[in-house]
Design a protein around this nucleic acid. Structure first.
Length: 401
RNA sequence: GCCGGAAUCGUCUAGCGGCAAUGACAAGAGACUGUAAAUCUCUCGCCUUCGGGCUUCGUAGGUUCGAGUCCUACUUCCGGCA
């Protein structure tokens, strides 16, 4: 069982630590989106320096390239990518929503590769197998994310997600048993619990490819609180290590949904809000209503497209008005970008389409979101959350009032 | 000096008698939430009550119902020969 310690609670919100085989995650935490085993435009050293605690890669993308067996051969995601900290993988379920021409059946999903058109199928079992080969610390159950907002479609997707969850749990346990018996013959149960090496295996080997990998169930149900409640109850009843909350697309009404879901989910297991975190308000609301980790492609995508976070909202650094703005991107920011470069310089790098523009912008945006969640965690711990939230959001969204 | 060729939006470019006129870049702005995204969308002669109106393709004439497109002259530029 994944170890999760709650150190402080405030309503549904909590401050805690997830103990993974590759280290601890202090929660709430923002997890970097490393879809293809890399955070776009950033090295793992840069991710580390900007304060990131964990990354999340995508099973779908890694199946296509380089192939999950290759990652296994390399020693797992953490070693392959040189990220010696906690890792997550998403199941590939999101691609049901985003790819064209997917065929969904009870068995699983047939895709065509967006790269070369090759057909392949992802099922709950094959997603689990792929995630075990990739070897992240925390896996997501293979779920059906509905394209439609329609109640009936949402219900069908939720029910399919539940049926698939049972198969994910069974397959995960089968793979876990194989992994543990393969790697743990000389290990005491106490050593195993601590992620210690069996005598015949080096410390290094166990660090990079621990036998313990963990599974999160994914709650669906769209914008319908009765479905969300049903899904939360179903997921809560399963033998899983934590929960993903999926299919959330807007902060609007997210608080009600999270209240519903997180009041039902067991308190002692971590919860990951899938895909949310482009807008700071998502993170405040998510943490306030009991989510422990977040991931989102927004910060790095915004960065590559020139949309950069400041305390006063996002700015488009490519706009003409920044050509002669020699001030730092954001006052008081201690990221490498803000400590060393001006808005005018970033503007110039974007105008000239220099690679460094995207690097510096990604460092800043990722740091902005990571450190915002860090501050949320600190404010929850010392009881100043409400004030911090109010002050931060009032300033950030001042233009939209 | 003679003989050829060329002049179209900030730049390059399409255009071969019925176009405010092609495409690219540049420029101005917007979007982006479990990444088919270093991507995509819009604007880009002037005015508009969004129906349309007006002025444009080096300059000036001409032919024609109609000219960026044909003719003449001029101007400038690029070749070749002196």
């Amino acid at each position: 069982m994944l170890k999760f310690d709650i150190e402080h609670k405030d309503g549904l919100a909590r401050v805690g630590v997830i103990h993974t085989p590759h280290g601890d995650i202090k929660t709430p935490a923002f997890v970097g989106a490393a879809t293809r085993a890399t955070v776009k435009a950033l090295t793992m050293k840069e991710m580390n320096e900007l304060g990131s605690q964990a990354i999340l890669a995508n099973t779908y993308h890694l199946i296509l390239r380089p192939g999950t067996e290759l990652i296994k051969e390399a020693g797992g995601l953490a070693k392959f990518s040189s990220w010696n900290k906690p890792t997550f993988t998403d199941s590939g379920g999101f691609q049901i929503l985003s790819l064209p021409n997917v065929k969904i059946s009870e068995n699983g999903v047939k895709f065509k590769s967006h790269i070369d058109g090759a057909s392949f199928e992802l099922t709950p079992e094959s997603s689990m197998q792929a995630q075990w080969a990739i070897g992240a610390d925390i896996h997501m159950a293979f779920d059906h994310l509905a394209k439609s907002e329609n109640y009936e479609d949402m219900k069908i997707a939720m029910e399919r997600t539940h049926a698939w969850l049972d198969r994910c749990v069974a397959e995960h346990q089968r793979l876990r048993n194989i992994a543990v018996s393969n790697g743990a013959s000389n290990t005491s149960s106490e050593d195993r619990k601590l992620g210690r090496a069996p005598l015949s295996v080096s410390e290094e080997e166990v660090f990079w490819r621990p036998n313990e990998q963990f599974l999160y169930a994914v709650v669906q149900g769209g914008t319908f609180n009765d479905l969300r409640a049903e899904s939360a109850r179903y997921c809560a009843s399963k033998d899983v290590d934590g929960f993903g909350i999926g299919g959330v697309f807007t902060a609007k009404d997210m608080d009600e949904m999270l209240k519903t879901v997180n009041s039902i989910l067991p308190e002692n297991k971590p919860r990951h809000l899938l895909g949310m975190g482009q807008e700071p308000i998502d993170l405040f609301v998510g943490a306030e209503y009991g989510c422990d980790t977040f991931d989102c492609v927004g910060p790095t995508r915004m960065a590559r497209n020139g949309s950069l976070y400041t305390k006063d909202g996002r700015i488009n650094i490519k706009n003409a008005k920044y050509a002669r703005d020699f001030t730092p991107l954001m006052d008081g920011c201690d990221c490498e970008c803000c400590k060393n470069y001006s808005r005018a310089y970033l503007h110039h790098l974007f105008r000239t389409d220099e690679i460094t523009a995207k690097v510096l912008a990604s460092i800043h945006n990722e740091h902005f979101i990571v450190s915002t969640v860090d501050h949320i965690r600190e404010s929850l711990a010392d009881g100043t959350f409400k004030g911090y939230k109010q002050t931060f959001l009032a300033r950030y969204y001042a233009d939209q009032r």
